[in-house]
């Protein structure tokens, strides 16, 4: 119980820091929005009344609390350019980014976990060198460049399909997956390397444990020892890097959406920055931050839930 409480307080504290930074960045630093709205010729009375209307005449702490209150009500502000609530704009873009992230994470785990286990098995001089080198390269390649290279290979050279654009799931599920698979691979690549490296060490760590020796002494062969004992113990700690992977997948999709012209959150954010649509940027930063924090919190909870050692604490 103490564990959950501590994690909850940590999340709460982080949310406060995030809101404070966002508040100061977007509400205080950019200056007085009234002047830009009314122009420099506006008279004092007009300015004062608009300031009062917008609540800008109040002291900063009060403004902060009101601002947080609005967010809590689900009001993330309104886009200047689209004159629409930020949340509505995000909602239409969400499925794209979401499916990108899900597929990237699935690819990461589906490829990373088996390769991680295998690389622990072949961690001899040559194998270990090879694994180290390949994963280092995966970590070093920028995902957007991988995206460009994939477009070059599959779109330009092999002409398997015309890259870019998004087909929604409800329109055509097969085409939908096809439209996000290459960007997902591009995003997954460095994360696959993270999982392989982490899992390799985790398996090697577990192999030294007494229960492995005990399992061998019972007459299990090395395959069974791996399958029945080592893998589960080695994979559970991977959950702790999952939070990092999810935030790295998110960061990857912000950029890779641009490469494949996918109409997701990333493109919305980049164009909002380009258009200086600050309320939209602000709302999106808040939304993305909260999502990242919430996912991290869920992972912390999940970790303790899956590991029976902690369940009864």
């Amino acid at each position: 119980m103490y564990y959950y409480l501590r994690k909850f307080i940590a999340m709460f504290f982080t949310i406060i820091i995030v809101t404070l930074i966002t508040f100061f960045s977007f509400e205080i630093i950019p200056g007085d929005p009234v002047l830009s709205k009314l122009g420099i010729d506006a008279d004092e009375a007009q300015i004062a009344s608009l300031r009062a209307e917008l609540g800008l005449d109040m002291p900063i702490p009060v403004r902060y609390i009101k601002w947080v209150g609005n967010i809590l009500k689900g009001d993330l502000g309104e886009s200047v350019r689209f004159s629409l609530p930020v949340y509505d704009l995000i909602k239409t873009r969400l499925p794209v980014t979401f499916s990108l992230m899900i597929i990237s994470i699935l690819i990461t785990l589906a490829v990373g976990i088996p390769l991680g286990i295998l690389s622990a098995k072949y961690n001899n001089r040559i194998g270990g060198f090879f694994i180290n080198f390949i994963t280092q390269i995966f970590l070093a390649i920028p995902s957007f460049w991988v995206g460009i290279m994939l477009i070059m290979i599959f779109g330009v050279i092999l002409k398997w399909f015309s890259p870019g654009g998004y087909v929604s799931w409800s329109e055509n599920p097969a085409e939908s997956i096809k439209s996000v698979i290459l960007p997902s691979v591009a995003i997954a690549l460095p994360n696959i390397a993270i999982v392989i490296r982490y899992l390799k060490n985790s398996v090697l760590e577990q192999m030294k444990k007494d229960y492995v020796r005990m399992a061998y002494s019972k007459g299990l062969n090395s395959f069974r020892v791996m399958k029945n004992h080592v893998i589960r113990n080695a994979v559970i700690p991977v959950i702790t890097v999952l939070g990092m992977i999810i935030s790295s997948v998110l960061a990857g999709s912000l950029i890779v959406e641009q490469v494949f012209t996918l109409p997701g959150i990333g493109r919305l954010l980049i164009s909002a920055i380009g258009n200086r649509d600050l309320p939209l940027v602000e709302g999106m930063i808040l939304y993305i931050s909260f999502t990242v924090l919430f996912i991290n919190f869920i992972i912390d909870i999940l970790y303790k839930f899956i590991d029976p050692r902690i369940k009864y604490d």
């Binding site: 444990k209 007494d210 229960y211 020796r213 005990m214 399992a215 061998y216 002494s217 019972k218 007459g219 299990l220 062969n221 029945n228 004992h229 589960r232 113990n233 559970i236 590991d307 029976p308 050692r309």
Partner: peptide
């Protein structure tokens, strides 16, 4: 060979180790 050894281990020759808290798989 390894296969013949696995047939003996735990069956004809078995072990009791020193540290019971680490000799058991914590997740089983």
């Amino acid at each position: 060979n390894e296969k013949e050894l696995t047939e003996i281990r735990g069956n004809r020759i078995s072990f009791i180790f020193q540290e019971p808290s680490t000799s058991l798989n914590p997740l089983m």
